[in-house]
């Protein structure tokens, strides 16, 4: 037997990782080169990359096609508002607490909806999100269905000047997306990444090879709820205002997220990033067209699904074998 080694990086991942690191540095410096509107736009883009990456982990890898992730966006946001307004917790400290609360809620929710399979699971997740929305609408302490705004005292506690508040929230949004992407790369590089990728490709094969599919799905569901809620909490901290309909919007937090993931490339870590870029390019150029904009989104989604069912990155990766992050396990045999 000859010598061998297993390498993760390839020339494409070296280029890709370099670009990602440079982009991170450039974005971290954005308060010095971008205006207020662009900073807000960038934080929104970061939030969508994070949400779509988390949904991709859930649906693309673990095969859990949830259409109810708005449940955790809204839950995280409401926990933040509740802690900040009713318990006097510092709003930035409330972000991780919102994630923990969502993970705790996700434990019994997962136990319940995991009894459903396939389409029924998808519908079940939506029902759960609707139940959360109705509960939020019944929460009189946060002004029920009409929603509420963060009091000035809470807002000022983030930072005293308006500019510093905006910078702080922007940097947290950037940190969130960086942590989400890093965590997913780390997960996929680990033993559990192997299992998740195997589940993505063939659940029966994975089970027959000793992968505890049910347990891994459960863990992924709870971890994704944790991340999604923290992203949701920050989104609404930036908006300052919350209502059940905006916080639990299936359109904003699930439909667009699925669009992004599917056109970018489901089941690939690069997919949600590419998808978000395309989504925002379309939105920024076409948003003035009103309803026609949504029609165009639909046409783009259908065209991509027909022409590139694995999404745009799927097309590229299949053709050129590129990877942005060093994920593959390449066996290199050194013949002696």
């Amino acid at each position: 037997m000859s010598d061998f080694r297993v390498q993760h990086a390839s020339w494409s991942s070296r280029i890709g990782t370099t670009i990602v690191v440079l982009a991170f540095v450039a974005f971290a410096a954005a308060p010095w080169w971008a205006d207020r509107a662009n900073l807000r736009l960038l934080s929104e883009i970061f939030a969508y990359v994070a949400l779509a990456s988390l949904w991709n982990l859930l649906a693309g890898y673990a095969g859990l096609v949830s259409v109810g992730q708005q449940a955790y966006v809204g839950l995280g946001a409401y926990v933040l508002f509740g802690l900040a307004m009713l318990a006097g917790v510092h709003p930035l400290a409330a972000i991780p607490l919102a994630g923990i609360a969502a993970a705790i809620v996700a434990l019994p929710v997962a136990a319940l909806i995991f009894r459903l399979r396939g389409h029924y699971f998808a519908i079940g997740t939506w029902v759960v999100a609707e139940v959360f929305r109705l509960l939020a609408a019944q929460t009189t302490a946060l002004d029920g269905g009409s929603g509420t705004s963060l009091p000035a005292a809470v807002v000022v506690s983030i930072a005293s000047s308006r500019q510093m508040r905006e910078f702080t929230i922007y940097w947290i949004a950037l940190a969130q997306v960086a942590v989400v992407l890093f965590a997913i790369v780390w997960l996929l590089r680990s033993r559990y990444g192997l299992a998740l990728t195997a589940i993505r490709d063939n659940e029966l094969g994975a089970r027959s090879n000793g992968v505890d599919v049910a347990r891994i799905k459960y863990c992924v569901y709870v971890a994704v709820a944790f991340g999604t809620a923290m992203v949701g909490a920050l989104i609404f901290l930036q908006k300052i205002r919350i209502s059940p309909d905006t916080a639990f919007s299936v359109n904003d937090w699930t439909a667009f997220v699925i669009f992004i993931t599917v056109i970018g490339g489901i089941g690939r870590i690069e997919g949600p990033i590419i998808g978000t870029v395309i989504f925002f390019l379309l939105r920024q150029t076409l948003a003035d067209l009103g309803a026609i904009y949504l029609l165009i989104l639909g046409v783009v989604a259908i065209a991509v699904m027909l022409k590139a069912p694995k999404g745009l990155w799927g097309l590229i990766a299949d053709r050129y074998g590129w990877q942005v992050f060093p994920l593959e396990r390449r066996l290199v045999i050194n013949k002696r």
Binding site: V6, R191, L194, A195, T197, A198, R200, D201, N202, L204, G205, A206, S208, N209, G210, V211, D212, G267, E328, R329, R330, L331
Partner: peptide, 20 residues
């Protein structure tokens, strides 16, 4: 029932790491 998107080597690593 292979893992189509993974390499042949990765397929075996899954089986050996989890099954073993």
């Amino acid at each position: 029932q292979p893992f189509d998107g993974m390499t042949v080597f990765e397929n075996l690593v899954v089986a050996a790491a989890f099954g073993g």
